[in-house]
Computed example of a mutant assay.
Amino acid sequence: MYKLTVTLFLLLAGSLCYGANTNTIPLQLTDSLSGKPVANAVVLLENGPAESPIEAEIVQKNRNFHPHTLIIPKHSRVDFPNQDNTQHHVYSFSPAKTFNIELYAGRPTEPVVFNKTGVVEIGCNIHDHMQAFILITDSAPSGRTDERGRLTVEIPPSADSDSGKEAGLLVWHPRLTDNTRMARFTIELPHSGPLELSVELSPEPASNDRLDGLQNRFREL
C-alpha cells in the first residue's frame, strides 16, 4: 500500500474585525504529489469556542451509515435508527467509546452517550462494508475543506494577541494513515507568513473493498 503526502499551507490573510480584531487564516489543503485539493477534511482549533451537548443520529439506510462522519460536542447522545428491512449489529471498540448494539431492527432502546473526546470508528458486524466515524470534540469545528481544499480558520483575539503562545490545529480525514486520531499541528502566535505542514493519507479504497481488518478485530474480542 502506498502513502500519499499531503501538504497543508496556512496563509495569513491579515486581520478582519469581528468585534475585536479576530485573525482569519485562509487554509489550503492539497495533495503534494498530485497537486489536487483535499476536500472534506475536518479542521478544529484546539481550545476554541465550546459547544453544548446535542442529540444526533446516524441512520442505517441502504446498508450504509448516514452521515459517514458525525462531529459532536463531548457528552452528546447519538441514536442509531435502522431504516433497512434487514437487521444490523452496530459496534465500536475505539478508545474514545466502546459499545455494542446487537442485532436489531427499528430504533435501539437507548442512545449512546459519548463522554470522551476522540475519534470513534463504527462498523456493522453483519455488513462488512459499512463504516462511519464520530468525532467527539471540546471545541466547535472551524469547518470542513471545500471541493478546492479551502477553509478559513479564525483565531480568537484573546489567543492571537499573546506573543510567545501557541495554538493547536487539529485536522482529520477518513484516509489519514491513522484515522483513529486527529493530526495535530502547532501555530506560533502571533502568526505571520506561510506555514507548511504534511500528513500522510492512505490510497483511495476500491469500491468493492471489504473492511476485513475491522471485522477481524471485532471477532478477536
Rank of each mutant, 00 (worst) to 15 (best):
213 G>D: 14
32 S>D: 09
94 S>A: 14
138 D>H: 08
127 H>C: 11
69 T>D: 04
87 Q>L: 11
11 L>N: 13
44 L>S: 03
121 E>P: 00
180 T>V: 10
84 D>R: 08
60 Q>R: 05
219 R>Q: 13
179 N>A: 05
69 T>S: 09
210 R>F: 09
162 D>A: 15
211 L>G: 10
120 V>T: 03
121 E>M: 11
204 E>Q: 12
184 R>D: 03
9 F>Y: 11
107 R>V: 15
185 F>G: 02
56 A>K: 11
156 P>T: 07
28 Q>E: 13
195 L>E: 12
137 T>H: 01
100 N>K: 07
7 T>H: 12
51 E>S: 07
180 T>R: 08
135 L>Y: 02
131 Q>Y: 03
50 A>P: 03
60 Q>D: 10
60 Q>Y: 08
118 G>H: 08
32 S>M: 08
154 E>M: 07
132 A>E: 01
127 H>G: 02
67 P>V: 06
5 T>K: 09
156 P>A: 07
119 V>Y: 01
218 F>W: 15
199 V>W: 10
131 Q>E: 04
25 I>M: 12
192 S>N: 13
194 P>M: 13
173 H>L: 06
20 A>L: 06
154 E>G: 11
130 M>D: 14
53 P>D: 06
143 G>V: 11
206 A>Q: 15
39 A>K: 07
30 T>R: 12
8 L>R: 04
46 E>K: 14
66 H>G: 10
185 F>C: 01
130 M>L: 13
24 T>R: 12
6 V>W: 01
143 G>H: 09
136 I>K: 05
145 T>F: 00
5 T>Y: 06
72 I>D: 01
4 L>M: 12
217 R>I: 08
171 V>M: 10
92 S>Y: 02
29 L>T: 05
151 L>Q: 00
17 C>W: 12
146 D>N: 15
179 N>E: 08
106 G>T: 00
13 A>D: 12
123 G>R: 05
74 K>R: 12
26 P>M: 11
84 D>E: 12
79 D>A: 06
98 T>I: 09
192 S>R: 11
64 N>H: 14
165 K>C: 05
41 A>Q: 01
161 S>D: 10
14 G>P: 10
143 G>A: 10
214 L>K: 10
106 G>C: 06
167 A>F: 04
26 P>Q: 03
24 T>V: 15
99 F>A: 06
38 V>M: 04
133 F>S: 04
109 T>V: 15
83 Q>I: 04
